[in-house]
Design a protein around this nucleic acid. Sequence first.
DNA 1: TCACCTTTGAAAGATATTTTCAACCGGGTT
DNA 2: AACCCGGTTGAAAATATCTTTCAAAGGTGA
Lengths: 305, 305
Amino acid sequence: MTHDLKESFNADSPPAPAALAAKVRTLAPSMTRSMQRVAEAVAGDPAGCAALTVTGLAELTGTSEATVVRTARLLGYPGYRDLRLALAGLAAHQQSGRAPSVTADIAVDDPIADVVAKLAYDEQQTLADTAAGLDTVQLGAAVAAAATARRIDIYGVGASSLVGQDLAQKLARIGLIAHSHTDPHLAVTNAVQLRSGDVAIAITHSGSTVDVMEPLRVAFDRGATTVAITGRPDGPVTQYADHVLTTSTARESELRPAAMSSRTSQLLVVDCLFIGVAQRTYETAAPALAASYEALAHRHTPRPR
Amino acid sequence: MTHDLKESFNADSPPAPAALAAKVRTLAPSMTRSMQRVAEAVAGDPAGCAALTVTGLAELTGTSEATVVRTARLLGYPGYRDLRLALAGLAAHQQSGRAPSVTADIAVDDPIADVVAKLAYDEQQTLADTAAGLDTVQLGAAVAAAATARRIDIYGVGASSLVGQDLAQKLARIGLIAHSHTDPHLAVTNAVQLRSGDVAIAITHSGSTVDVMEPLRVAFDRGATTVAITGRPDGPVTQYADHVLTTSTARESELRPAAMSSRTSQLLVVDCLFIGVAQRTYETAAPALAASYEALAHRHTPRPR
DNA sequence: TCACCTTTGAAAGATATTTTCAACCGGGTT
DNA sequence: AACCCGGTTGAAAATATCTTTCAAAGGTGA
């Protein structure tokens, strides 16, 4: 599956009911300027845009019909007509559930209570977006591969390395052979050992972190089943991925680095992967979980009161 | 609001959000035979009809385009196009109505899509609980201490160690001196160096992990400001904590270890702490964040497409 | 600067929707 | 029964909307 470029994601989800705002955010970086203007308008006011014709929306955004159609395509619809229908559906949706008013960015002078509320809300949003945007077919395939893998190598650097470690820890707990690699050199060194029947998982929000791409490429070339967990489903890392799991991207602000929401999103994906694997290996996973719990008991003071 | 069914929708003429089936029934007598066929199809399967063009619907009902348009007009829309948009909205609505049963535990035989939904829902719940249960006064105090600390030491083992590392990474990014300790011996060794003006943070879900409590005790004795992030505000660790930040605990199931939801909760707390500190040190934090972003740019492949 | 690739919108081409209009139907009248 | 007439219907023209094409504009690296 060596797809690249724009055509790749036109193939996947034909319809896309909700989670449009999330999709817009994920795809925004791969859009051209004028397409971003259109996407922004659409995400900002679905109801309003649903009432517009191609020409209308083109005028509103100061672009051309062609650009509007292109944007619709990029978002996964066959054409503008279908995007418009989806927007109408979305509008009806929002109508029912009025959003709370903590959506604003976190400001420097926000009282601490607001920070808590906004952050919690944002992360909840990120979770919802991620769940909506996750391709369950890809996830299922990744789960199947991991559940039967001889060994699982995980690559991630920076903030993503923690996510990788988390996954490795959990998989190890249910008796699988899983390792997380942070050092790029060691990662490549290890990747060389992989072959068919092994699984390599790369975690990178940007989709273009060389330190993570390189070991994945090696694993891919060696015949291992490769999985990319990334916020950029069109990024270069997907070249070497048999299965791509997309994380969502929340808008970031000055005080809220992208790493924060991408981490939340990545963790959800990783958890889903883990649970999926645990389901498939239930016979061995359940006792292993119990055993590891037992083994740690003595590390706690006897009676917590 | 006393009106019931039939009377209600005569009032709202221009749009007609729901109650389409009812409208069809009321207006049916005043329709001609072929129009009734169209109206019937529309009321029977809004979603399906939304996918059809005028011609398609005309064929389906064995009538002509003109009749379809007439029917749309009779139902109160300017034309078929608008009826179609309304249908799409209606369909989306119905869809959302059915799916409230994700609250159950994750079972071994749940399809992967359910796993995603349940997990996302659970984590969202955990976030809400955590935000609600977080003591902003304690948080504010912890933030104040951390923002002005000479150095910050963080203790966590197991799953919590990742949370500790995450916090340390982020604090370091905004120019603070923060370290996460995983090795209990090294943690204690380092804790001995602390004194008044330093901050020590212990992260333990159980509130009774000796490997984490011990360094915190040492730091406490040495006069450092100590913070405990724990799910058990009555646990032994709080003895040595000047400020206690409580994380929430979601119910766990066989397949979903406690570590999973506690991690989500801990991360939110840690994020709040971080943002709070970033706010208070904004002058230095903002440029530091920008600088660390710059420094990493070359680790990505130049042009993602 | 130039060559090359990307992005963009004007306009042509294709579809879908709306309107027009004549044929058709059914019932009442001579 | 034959005829007329208002209402109903669909084929086809007219219009609006959407899609595609293509060349010019804009940017980037050598």
